[in-house]
Design a protein around this nucleic acid. Structure first.
Length: 285
DNA sequence: CTGCAGGCCGGCG
DNA sequence: CGCCGGCCTGCA
């Protein structure tokens, strides 16, 4: 641990909940309780002990800056959670169990492909598919004597065929990935441009991408494009909102209206708390 | 063996 | 337009 960097005085941050609440797919817990994952172009190992983070990487250059950005360490989440508790009694009730969850700032391209893969799929298999694609086509990185793989850039997927995606376990999503890679490379999909648009416009553009519907678009916006006011609605969230607030068999649009009304600009963060709580209760695994 | 998993597409009324 | 059947694959 000698060459770890240390970030002290971390408040309102829970590493485990943040990495296990379902927003990311490439972090793995180690025997000592630390997590190893890939952030953009480097492998990172991170461990939280009380209010301190111990971080190391194959590339120590600006590691603190990279970490602060990725984990949103400079955002005042105690203020965010205070607001959430004021907005809604149910959130106030579950917050003791969910406190410390943060929305990660992940790579847009990786989010696009990862959430295309997530459609009608389960989390263990999503993780496995992403790992296989990274292993086959991503850049190899050595860290502490082991080999890891970065998530592949579009250029690295340029010549991958539909059949090869099938071999990675993507199933019927193979042609969506294939098309996304090619449209990205020929400029048809411009994520930087989409990132610069307002919410409605950016979502409108994302949904034009084959394999991207309402829910996947919202996940890309929330986890990859820094839009904390979007509210991705999957089967879990639909159940939670129906059970907790509205009642049975509610239309998706109705749920969306409710979420915007209730949680406003913090809807995405509220969604992560509701999702984490639901999965850790009666529905677990 | 069916059903289902963090949906989405395409065809039909 | 909204609705609905089908879908790779692995696991219960």
């Amino acid at each position: 641990m000698a060459k770890d960097i240390v970030i002290n005085d971390i408040i309102c941050f829970d590493l485990i909940k943040t990495l296990e609440c379902g927003q990311c797919f490439r972090w793995n817990v180690q025997e000592d309780g630390s997590y190893i994952g890939v952030i953009n172009d480097r492998v990172i190992k991170i461990k939280q002990i009380n209010n301190s983070l111990y971080i190391t990487s194959n590339n120590m250059d600006n590691l603190e800056g990279i970490s602060r950005k990725y984990f949103s360490l400079d955002v005042d989440y105690s203020e965010v959670e205070f607001k959430l508790s004021k907005l809604d009694k149910h959130l106030k009730d579950i917050l003791p169990k969910t406190t410390g969850i943060r929305i990660l700032k992940q790579d847009m391209w990786e989010m696009l492909i990862s959430y295309i893969i997530s459609a009608n799929n389960n989390i263990p298999r999503i993780r496995k598919i992403i790992e296989t694609i990274s292993k086959r086509y991503g850049t190899k990185v050595e860290f502490e004597g082991k080999i890891y793989y970065l998530f592949p850039k579009a250029e690295q997927l340029k010549n991958v065929t539909n059949e090869e995606y099938l071999e990675c376990g993507t199933g019927f999503r193979n042609r969506y990935i294939y098309k996304a890679v090619n449209d990205f490379l020929n400029g048809e999909i411009d994520l930087d441009y989409i990132y610069g648009l307002d919410n409605d416009k950016s979502k409108e553009h994302l949904i034009k991408i084959m394999g991207v519907g309402n829910k996947v678009a919202d996940c890309i916006l929330l986890f990859g494009m820094d839009r904390q006011d979007v509210f991705p609605i999957d089967v879990w969230i639909k159940r939670v909102v129906e059970d907790t607030y509205i009642g049975k068999d509610t239309d998706i649009k109705e749920i969306l209206r409710f979420a915007n009304e209730k949680f406003g600009c913090l809807a995405g963060i509220a969604q992560q708390h509701l999702f984490y709580n639901a999965r850790n209760n009666r529905y677990l695994k």
